[in-house]
Nucleic acid binder design. Structure first.
Lengths: 97, 97
DNA sequence: TAGTTCTTGTCAAATATTGTCTAAATCTAA
DNA sequence: TTAGATTTAGACAATATTTGACAAGAACTA
């Protein structure tokens, strides 16, 4: 499940209108629409607010958001998998200290 | 081995001066110095040129460069590992198609 | 068809990144 | 030590990227 899909399905489950979510996020409907369509990435602050507005576990949303940044960095590269693995190892070894 | 370290050690192995590398990369010594100290990230074009100038396998350099972008995205996040893993899965499943 | 919701395109403002210059710091050899 | 060379640090303009906002169009609903 991709971030944009999650946001849209959650909003629909809760029967909220774009304008209602928009006001909770302090922006306009156009931006929310774009976020739900994957045309724009939410900022981190928006992620925080969206978690509250849509009642989604914050860390779940954050994970998805971060993973999409990672994905964008490497997609289309033929060394994508190796690059991600290198980063993963680095994170893991750092956590041990 | 981190990108900046690799670049510096390779240059030293080859007994090149910053200004020599700089001219091959079409920039000035200050920038190369910063790259070697990790203060600046090379652009992708610079990675390509550095691979040639320093005689480093291009894909190796590219992997390191990409991995550091990934690392920067998630470092310090307590969901960092999960986020990377999600991205990794996504890349893997997409490659199958 | 009118009213509402959603989508799209555009563009300026805000941010972030990059390149270059200058001068200071560090190193090296005589 | 000092002169000359190399490397580093700081500042700042140029560029690029991201973001927010507006307006108009499209799609949906009653």
């Amino acid at each position: 499940m991709i971030l944009s899909e999650l946001l849209k399905s959650k909003r629909e489950t809760k029967n909220l209108l774009l304008r209602e979510v928009a006001s909770m996020i302090d922006t306009d409907t156009a931006l929310i629409s774009k976020i739900e369509k994957g045309d724009r990435k939410p900022t981190r602050e928006q992620i925080d607010k969206l978690a509250i507005a849509l009642d989604i576990e914050h860390s779940k949303l954050l994970k998805l958001w971060l993973s999409e940044k990672v994905y964008e960095d490497v997609k289309g590269e033929d060394v994508a998998i190796d690059a991600i693995k290198i980063a993963l190892k680095r994170i893991k070894t750092e956590e041990k200290n």
